[in-house]
């Protein structure tokens, strides 16, 4: 799961403090594995160093949790690029894809396009496997079929999610 880009997407929706960011992430994407504070601040300092976020306010007191972070123009470009780039087709992508869809909705981008881009990438890979399978021996067929059935399951999820985007938008956007 791409924590950095997920943070950027959440920050594009609105500036947040570190603890607020962790809570938003855990609530939406961290169901089984909440982030450690160490991860949160390490990620934020990397994003700061790369100019993708900036500190846009510090509350009086001590410690990193006083800082409020906002996304920069470079950060927005980074999110846009990430959402437009399909994930490498492989089983168990659902966390990253789900995060992309939710973040596209939160930032007012086209979630349908995220899904369509991914579907095209999956099909491209499935075509390669099908080609290999039809020109190979039985072992090739079985190995390729294993991957094909898994990728098909991803595609069914993409299709189902596309059909539920309006519902999801109503749930995730305030």
């Amino acid at each position: 799961m791409a924590i950095g880009q997920t943070f950027l997407g959440l920050l594009e929706a609105k500036p947040r403090h570190g603890y607020d960011l962790k809570r938003a992430y855990d609530e939406r994407f961290g169901a089984d594995r909440p982030l450690h504070y160490g991860q949160v601040y390490a990620t934020l300092s990397r994003l700061l160093k790369n100019g993708l976020v900036e500190v846009d306010g510090v509350e009086p007191g001590e410690g990193p949790e006083r800082k409020r972070y906002a996304i920069t123009e470079a950060g927005i470009t980074d999110v846009a690029g990430w959402l437009a780039t399909p994930e490498k087709p492989e089983p168990y992508l659902q966390n990253t894809l789900y995060a992309k869809v939710v973040l596209a909705l939160l930032t007012g981008r086209s979630a349908a396009e995220v899904l369509d881009t991914q579907r095209a990438e999956h099909l491209r890979f499935m075509r390669d496997l099908t080609h290999r399978k039809t020109h190979g021996d039985l072992a090739d067929q079985l190995i390729c079929d294993f991957a094909l059935f898994h990728l098909e399951a991803d595609l069914r999820w993409l299709e189902l999610t596309a059909a539920r985007l309006d519902q999801l938008r109503a749930e995730v956007t305030p």
Binding site: T117, R127, T130, L148, L151
Partner: peptide
Amino acid sequence: EARVAAYSHREIVVRDGRTRTVVAA
């Protein structure tokens, strides 16, 4: 069915009576 479509050279998607072509990166 995606596994059937994988025998094609390319695909188009129809949604609500409109065609969309997405070119894979």
